[in-house]
């Protein structure tokens, strides 16, 4: 049995349903991320886990124990808020000591734990400062230390990086990952940033309109998305609309301007997904069974190691493709071929 079991949780705000039958099981010690666009219900699910919002139906189990109706102060979960919610009238040290004071720990133990956490988040030198005297990144680390100091069973983080600039965000992602590895506490992180989710998580729950669309590893989400939403939200994608029919010797997918064999799946209208790195760009069409579509370059973005091209085929939506940029970038308007192997295409239902 899993550490946390969320079973068929629904949440209504009046007539509006913010969560639809959410079911997730989270193993102990994992770093799980709830990923989804703004308004998809991530914070709502986190609040249900923290105990701030009662569920409309369904339940939450912690190691087999029903905690659905346990109040937040009895759950022993650490929580890092989106805006950090540091106590402005207390120093960094007092903020971190707060959960231990609540628990009436002896003075010596408090000093020792606070010292250890300050070291863990590298804020030893700032113990006496007030929150408003710290940078955003430092405040975030105080919030993290405060949520971890009492050895919670579970750490919940609501978009902890969203207020930080990109460089800092990257460093803190590394740090958070390292802290997770050191402590072994179960982390549930919320973000709308798919890169952040992919970098940090053992597993990712992709949320859309109050539903969990897919709960899987980053690799599985990227290579085997179960829906168009997941395919488009996680990484860059090319999606071809077409239909699957029985042809000579197997199933055939007919997309805009090409036909390719696909493994067994339901016939009829279908979508095929192709990741940009699976599309090759060349001046000539190869003769090896791969699909080659004539395209012209509409735009390109050069990033040193490679270039991302937007290519327009005669029919259908533009195609994204990565190309090597070692010997220069193809100019806009250049006539080329977009080449891909049918086995790299993923059929979506």
């Amino acid at each position: 049995m899993s550490f946390i079991e969320i079973t068929q949780v629904s949440k209504h705000y009046g007539a509006f349903q913010a969560l639809h039958d959410v079911t997730l099981s989270i193993p102990k010690g994992e770093f799980v991320t709830l990923l989804g666009p703004s308004g998809s219900g991530k914070t709502t699910l986190l609040k249900v886990l923290a105990g701030f919002e009662p569920v409309s139906s369904g339940g939450v189990l912690l190691e087999g124990r029903d905690i659905t109706r346990v109040p937040p102060e009895k759950r022993n979960f650490g929580l890092v808020f989106q805006g950090y919610a540091l106590f402005p009238h207390m120093t960094v040290e007092d903020n971190i000591a707060y959960p231990l004071r609540v628990r009436r720990r002896p003075r010596g133990e408090i000093a020792e734990r606070v010292g250890a956490l300050l070291k863990l988040v590298q804020l030893d030198r700032f113990a006496g400062r007030k929150p408003h005297e710290l940078s955003g990144g430092q405040q975030q680390r105080v919030a993290l230390a405060r949520a971890l100091v009492f050895k919670p069973d579970l750490l919940l983080l609501d978009e902890p990086m969203s207020a930080l600039d990109k460089k800092l965000r990257h460093d803190l992602q590394e740090e958070l990952r390292a802290i997770h590895r050191t402590l072994g506490t179960t982390f549930i992180n919320v973000t709308h940033d798919q890169e952040e989710a992919m970098h940090m998580s053992d597993r990712i729950a992709v949320m859309n309109q109050g539903r969990v669309e897919q709960f899987d590893t980053a690799h599985a989400l990227y290579r085997r998305p179960v829906s168009r939403f997941v395919a488009e939200f996680v990484g860059k994608s090319n999606i071809f609309a077409g239909r699957i029919d029985r042809g000579g010797g197997g199933q055939l997918f007919s997309g805009p301007g090409f036909t390719m064999p696909v493994p067994d799946c339901a016939q009829g209208e279908a979508l095929a997904l192709l990741r940009p790195e699976d599309v090759e760009i060349a001046g000539q069409a190869p003769m090896d069974g791969r699909i080659a579509l004539p395209v012209t370059v509409t735009s390109s973005t050069y990033s040193g190691d490679r270039a991302l091209y937007t290519l327009s085929p005669p029919t259908g939506a533009p195609i994204l493709a990565y190309g090597s940029a070692r010997s220069g970038v193809h100019p806009d308007g250049a006539a080329l071929f977009a080449i891909f192997a049918p086995e790299n295409a993923i059929v979506l239902d």
């Binding site: 923290a50 105990g51 937040p72 102060e73 929580l79 919610a85 707060y98 609540v102 405060r146």
Partner: peptide
């Protein structure tokens, strides 16, 4: 900020403890 009170609750503080240590001083 209403989150201050929620933060206190998540750290295990009872309503009266939160009132004394967070709400009242602020």
């Amino acid at each position: 900020d209403p989150n201050l009170d929620l933060a206190g609750a998540s750290m295990g503080a009872s309503r009266s403890f939160r009132f004394r240590t967070v709400t009242l001083p602020l």
